[in-house]
């Protein structure tokens, strides 16, 4: 059973609500019985050893797993009260509302401007001045504007790894998502850049719900308001959510012995 403590309450049904969620890759049962509520406009961290299903669960939240053949899910996952797996729901539109940042910064091999304008263009924004505004404001929100303002025509790949990651964040912000999923966003960039991305997350949190998967417990402690610990206890068995609640409390007094052994470093 999952240990819950001060699970965030959503009286207005806002945020993400998950009930008895199961997930399969083909025959492999990857996740079982996940129940949780993600607090809107807060930072929630998913932690756990490799292969514990935290990234899989994250990718379920904007249905990126639909792109993988043979995947299947059961249970309820809703965004602001709407079941995202209900028949007829357009995953394309869902992904616009639930943006994603990946481990490896992945700017398109196009100019910085075109990278940020990509999403708005998809949505049908054609006016040059509208696009200019969106690009500028998105880059400002991602704390990148000052570094690139005079060189928007440069290729996105010309940026450093940390800058590329902030460009990817700006690119997502340009379509005004409600939720930002971050799949180990700092594991492929240098430590100075990590600091910048973490600062940026703190700045964005009051306006966007952020969910971050991280391998680094220090990072989870530094940035997150809530924390969820996932674990696959035995190879071949499905992983599940073990403990969920306020980050500080979990770190100071873990209630489940498995959580305790993980945060004191006994698991991978």
């Amino acid at each position: 059973m999952t240990v819950y403590r001060h699970a965030p309450k959503n009286p207005q049904g806002e945020g993400i609500h998950v009930e008895d969620f199961n997930f399969w890759y083909g025959d492999f049962h990857a996740l079982t019985g996940v129940n949780l509520d993600i607090a809107p406009r807060k930072i929630t961290a998913f932690i756990g050893p490799s292969g514990c299903g935290k990234s899989t669960f994250l990718r379920c939240m904007n249905r990126m797993n639909d792109l993988i053949e043979g995947t299947r899910e059961e249970g309820l996952m809703s965004l602001d009260g709407n079941d995202i797996y209900a028949p007829g729901v357009d995953p394309v539109d869902l992904r616009r509302r639930v943006g994603m940042i990946f481990q490896q910064p992945n700017p398109f091999p196009k100019s910085i401007y075109e990278n940020v304008a990509f999403g708005p263009r998809l949505q049908g924004v054609t006016s040059k001045s509208d696009l200019d505004d969106i690009v500028e404001e998105s880059l400002k929100r991602a704390n990148l504007w000052k570094e690139v303002s005079g060189q928007l025509g440069k290729n996105g790949l010309a940026l450093s790894g940390g800058q590329q990651q902030r460009l990817c964040i700006a690119r997502v912000l340009a379509v005004q998502p409600d939720v930002l999923l971050m799949d180990e966003p700092c594991s492929a960039i240098d430590p100075t850049s990590v600091q910048k991305v973490e600062d940026l997350m703190a700045e964005l949190a009051p306006t966007v719900t952020i969910i971050i998967v991280t391998h680094s417990m220090q990072q989870a402690a530094r940035v997150s308001d809530y924390m969820a610990f996932f674990l696959q206890e035995r190879a071949g068995e499905p992983a599940t959510l073990i403990e969920y609640g306020d980050t500080k409390e979990i770190f100071s007094r873990p209630r489940d012995p498995r959580t305790e052994s993980y945060i004191t470093g006994r698991f991978g």
Binding site: P120, Q123, I134, S138, R141, W145, K146, Q176, A202, E203
Partner: peptide
Amino acid sequence: EGPSASDASALLAQQSSAQLIRSRLDNA
């Protein structure tokens, strides 16, 4: 871009940028 992460002006800047983006997207 706001002087620091914790400053209230950063929040304000974020909110006004977000609002601007939303209004431009509405022109789509």
